[in-house]
């Protein structure tokens, strides 16, 4: 019990003093997950929206694939990216393994089905009558689609926030393809694993608090946006 309290006190001290080693880890985490999120949103929002709007026969199959992708274990994604990027793998010549680039690739793959799948669900959730009524008011086809997307915007933001929560907190993939190298590929989650193992609970707790705070901020921001509706 004492250990927890002294750990907590030390953690707060590290946070308040903006400890440089700590900050480095936080910044790398935000960079990796932020870039992965941006890439997955750039691809996932339009694809999810297109799927939500389309009446294709194959949509059922694509939906099943996306939903499976939403539940992909990060460690399996890590393994896959590892194999792709390892020296003998098809992309070995990039020499990305154990660099932040590899971590971005893995997290993009984890985030994409979340963004696309939840965007699709949000677009499908818009009342189909809305599209017809907007058309009746004189909308072009593009204006019609835009109106549907605007209606779905809260759901799209929720999709991006959910994906952020997913990648910032995953450990399996970044551990495998990044290697948790100090000053190079160490992020919040891998640092927590390491520091817990080595008994440095203060640093582990400080990192845990930051992780929770980031997730909390993202959700508060989303609720704020929802409240404005």
């Amino acid at each position: 019990m004492d250990e927890i309290f002294s750990g907590l006190a030390h953690a707060i001290q590290l946070l308040v003093s903006a400890d440089p080693a700590l900050m480095e880890i936080v910044i790398l985490s935000l960079q990796v997950s932020g870039i992965a999120l941006a890439l997955s949103a750039i691809a996932g929002v339009p694809i999810g929206a297109a799927l939500g709007l389309s009446r294709l026969r194959a949509r059922g199959l694509i939906t099943a694939l996306l939903y499976t992708g939403m539940g992909l274990p990060p460690v399996v994604v890590g393994l896959f990216v590892y194999l792709m990027l390892s020296r003998s793998g098809p992309f070995g010549s990039l020499a990305w393994l154990f660099t932040p680039n590899a971590m971005i690739v893995a997290q993009t793959i984890i985030a994409f089905p979340l963004v696309a799948g939840l965007t699709m669900a949000a677009v499908q959730g818009v009342d189909p009558a809305l599209r017809v009524q907007v058309r009746s008011l004189g909308a072009t086809r593009a204006q019609e689609i835009w109106a549907v997307l605007r209606e779905a915007r809260v759901g799209v933001i929720a999709a991006i926030v959910a994906a952020f929560g997913g990648v910032i907190s995953e450990v399996g993939a970044v551990m495998l393809v990044g290697g948790n190298i100090e000053g190079k590929t160490r992020v919040l989650t891998t640092a927590i694993v390491l520091n817990t193992r080595t008994g440095d609970f203060a640093l582990a707790l400080a990192l845990g608090i930051i992780l929770l705070t980031l997730a909390f901020i993202a959700n508060v921001a989303m609720l704020q946006l929802q409240g404005k509706e």
Partner: peptide, 9 residues
Amino acid sequence: VFQRPVLLR
């Protein structure tokens, strides 16, 4: 003006 109007957010 539809029987069941749907307004925009």
